Amino acid sequence: MTERWKHRADDRTRLVQVGTTSLLLAFPVGGVFLTRAVSAMEPLVLWPGLVLSAVACAVLLSRRSYPLVVLLMTTACIMTEGFLGYLLTPLLMGPMLVAQYTVSLRPDRKATWYSAVAAAAGIALTGFITTDSSHDWIIGLVNPAAWILMVASFGSYVRVRREYAVARAEHAAQEREVETRRRVVQERMRIARELHDVVAHHLALANAQAGTAAHLARTHPDQAIAIVEKLPEVTASALRELKATVGLLRQDTDSQETAPAPGLEQLPHLVDTCSSAGLDVAVAIEGRPRPLPPGLDLTAYRIVQEALTNITKHAATPSARVRLDYTPHDLTLTITNEAGTRLAAAGFPGPSRGYGLLGMRERALSVGGTFHAGLRPEGGFEVACTLPLPSPEESTS
């Protein structure tokens, strides 16, 4: 009901202003009759006070367009009524107080207080001149001026609250925009890592298999044919993962029908795929393996996958050792290639080269882990990361 009346008021602004002003006219008219009722002297003539009150209320229709002019006119009307002998009560000063409140809502603070002091001084001067008894100076001088300053203070308070609300809304909008941009950047980085891991891994294996098959084509054609026959498996696996990744990007809402993300359970298949490309992979597991959360499981799998891909592309010797060390609080992954001194000459990427190591580092840090990659003192290259494991209570909840 409230919203409906609000919309109606917005559509009929002028009609609402006229109605409000008409209701406001009752206050100064009441002040005029109150003066006549309490006056001990000869009865006052009503019509000058009624006319001046009507004029003061009528000019309020333009208070939003010309607030200072309206304040000046209403002040003149009230001062004239004071000189005619009417008591300067809050009822009689109603139109002037409304005009002062409207001026106080403006952002120009100097104009607010200058106008308030000027209006209060004018009313105080009127009360000082028209007050006969020295005992009535509080009612005729201080009280009217205090009402004006109080209304100006209240209007300034309302203005400050509105400005604060606007500033707070703008700040909240800026924070939402910054948070949206941050999430977009994070999502782009996540998608880039996924696509890089999928494409780089399978293309590197396919390239290694094709190179090995070409090398053995003349001397060992049977082995070359066997390697070529395994190429469709690698490309089919790449297409499946790409289809799953792109399918997630095209979905408008979350779906429970998407294929599960790869994890360490697919590590034997990953080792077999690398072996078909000529990479000898040895896997060692220490500690008691336990199920991992999906995000952590995917992170561990992608790090092992990318490390083996780098060894396939860059290592001088096609061999790798993968070690998974489970502790109650951490999972440590170590992927080592003992390639000797030829590794650096083969162009194995350092910590600042390529996107593979950068992606592995970002994955490890995103789950609160640590990451290190570099040449080993005894020769070769090693990738090591430690991923924090949730407590048994958290993993079962």
Rank of each mutant, 00 (worst) to 15 (best):
R176D: 07
P107T: 06
R188L: 12
A165M: 07
V184G: 02
A145F: 13
T112S: 05
D108G: 09
S65L: 07
E175P: 02
Y86M: 13
R106W: 11
V70Q: 12
E163T: 02
I138H: 02
R181S: 14
F83M: 14
A116L: 03
L91D: 10
T130C: 10
V151E: 09
V117T: 11
S134K: 01
R64S: 12
A169Y: 00
R159I: 01
L97Q: 06
L61E: 00
S62K: 02
L84F: 11
T75W: 11
R64L: 03
L84T: 13
V55I: 14
S115K: 03
R162M: 01
A169N: 05
S62G: 01
L84Y: 15
L105E: 08
M96Q: 14
V70P: 12
V117R: 06
Y114A: 07
V185M: 05
V103D: 01
T102M: 15
A56E: 03
F83N: 07
P144F: 07
L88V: 09
S53L: 04
S134Y: 04
F128C: 06
V55T: 07
E179D: 12
M73C: 15
Y164L: 03
R161M: 13
M73T: 14
A76Q: 09
V69Y: 11
V98W: 04
Q186C: 10
A121R: 04
Q186T: 13
I138L: 09
T75E: 07
Q186R: 14
L125N: 03
A124Q: 01
R182V: 07
A146V: 15
S134A: 10
D136N: 05
Y101S: 14
V158E: 13
R106Y: 04
T112P: 00
L97T: 09
V166D: 06
S65I: 02
T102Q: 15
Y101D: 04
L71I: 00
L71Y: 01
A120Y: 07
A54P: 05
D132F: 09
R63S: 04
G94L: 14
I123P: 01
Y101F: 15
Y66V: 04
V142T: 02
Y101L: 15
A116R: 08
H171Q: 14
V55S: 06
L91Q: 15
A116K: 01
R183L: 13
Q100F: 03
A118Y: 05
R168K: 14
R176F: 09
A119E: 06
T75P: 01
H171F: 09
R161Y: 10
A111E: 13
G155V: 00
A56L: 05
Y157S: 12
A76N: 07
L88D: 05
S104I: 04
R188G: 13
A54F: 15
R182W: 06
S153A: 13
Y66L: 08
L68H: 09
R182A: 14
L92S: 12
V55N: 11
A124Y: 00
C77Q: 08
I148R: 00
I148F: 03
L125A: 14
P107W: 04
F83P: 05
T126H: 03
R168C: 08
